[in-house]
């Protein structure tokens, strides 16, 4: 999911492409647990705006985060068409609210371009690469980097 993988020569990596906040992203399939329809969540007090609340996933209490909000791309309008991507980040499980999930992509790691904004702007360090697919460009998301300090913030 990080540079190590993407620089390996000729590695095939599977991504799930999704859209959030009007931009196209892709997340490595190994970190995705399941994809669910949006259902009502229980709000958490004192949480940051992007944390929508917690949901019951077969007995586990998992937080649901608006991915667009987390990325600073505004707020996703919530409706029944929204999709929740359940991901595992380290030992934590959480749900990401996105606009849509489109497809699974098998790509050669060599086709991933480096993110040229990385050095100039630390704020986008969670986009580790750019992946051209047909006529669009997908941003390769590093979820661990995006949620690196989630636990502390919540505390």
């Amino acid at each position: 999911m990080t540079d190590d993988d993407t620089t390996d020569r000729g590695n095939i990596i599977e991504f799930v492409s999704l859209s959030a906040g009007g931009q196209g992203f892709c997340v490595e399939i190994t970190s995705i647990r399941e994809i669910r329809r949006w259902s009502q969540v229980t709000a958490l007090p004192f949480s940051e705006d992007s944390v929508l609340g917690v949901m019951n996933l077969r007995g586990a209490v998992i937080p649901i985060v608006d991915l667009a909000g987390r990325l600073g791309l505004g707020t996703t309008e919530i409706g029944s068409r929204n999709i929740v991507v359940v991901v595992a980040i380290g030992s934590r499980i959480m749900g990401l609210l996105v606009d849509s999930v489109s497809e699974i992509l098998s790509v050669n790691s060599e086709t991933i371009r480096p993110n040229p904004t990385l050095r100039r702007d630390g704020g986008t360090s969670h986009v580790t690469g750019l992946l051209p697919v047909e006529d669009v460009m997908l941003r390769v998301l590093d979820l661990s980097a995006l949620f690196a300090n989630e636990g502390e913030e919540a505390a």
């Binding site: 586990a60 209490v61 934590r92 959480m94 989630e150």
Partner: peptide, 13 residues
């Protein structure tokens, strides 16, 4: 059910 495993501690909860 603990909140801390997947999220973190919440003040007052």
């Amino acid at each position: 059910k603990s909140l801390e495993g997947n999220y973190g501690a919440v003040n007052g909860i």
